[in-house]
């Protein structure tokens, strides 16, 4: 018995095949783009301050992402420029940033600064805050304790 569907002017079945196939194709393209972005931006998201000019991919001649903790007492605003010093493992790096960093930026907090190093200063175009994985209730005692431990 021939069970082939009778031809209709507009077959909904064709449309049903086409749309998921297009979505599957787009998913593959999106996957390739995501991997591309990931690999071109390097797998390790940042270099630590003490690795600048030492570790592969952390050359001070190219655009870098640098992680360090904002030194206590180093944060200043000069007009529209925010300046601070970030440190990691005993190495320090002065940072200039046009504007005010967002998020929970403050002294004694780890940050990732994106930019280029010019005359020993990181001229940052983006600042991101890298907060810890500890969650504690907000109270004055805990804040002081946290600041002490972060800056020590």
């Amino acid at each position: 018995m021939d069970l082939t569907p009778r031809p209709t002017p507009e077959s909904p079945k064709r449309k049903r095949r086409f749309v998921p196939a297009v979505i599957a194709g787009l998913a593959v393209v999106a996957g390739v783009v995501i991997i591309g972005f990931f690999l071109t931006s390097s797998i390790d998201y940042y270099c630590n301050v003490d690795e600048i000019g030492v570790r592969d991919g952390c050359d001070d001649t190219r655009r870098v992402r640098v992680q360090g903790t904002v030194d206590e007492g180093s944060l200043e605003s000069r007009g529209s420029i925010t300046t601070f010093v970030m440190s990691f493992n005993g190495a320090s790096l002065p940072v200039d940033y046009e504007g005010e960093p967002g998020g929970i930026f403050q002294e004694c907090i780890p940050v990732v600064a994106h930019g280029r190093i010019v005359d020993g200063v990181l001229v940052a175009t983006r600042i991101e805050v890298k907060h810890s994985n500890e969650y504690e209730a907000e109270n004055a005692e805990r804040i002081t304790e946290a600041e002490k431990s972060a800056c020590s």
Binding site: I23, A27, V28, I34, I127
Partner: peptide
């Protein structure tokens, strides 16, 4: 609110997005 950015191509965010896209493809 915390980092100061909606998105970055860092390992966790990128692999999570990739996982999401993989399953969208699976459903397709």
């Amino acid at each position: 609110l915390t980092w100061g950015t909606f998105w970055q191509w860092d390992p966790r965010l990128t692999t999570t997005l990739f996982l999401f896209v993989t399953y969208v493809g699976y459903l397709a």
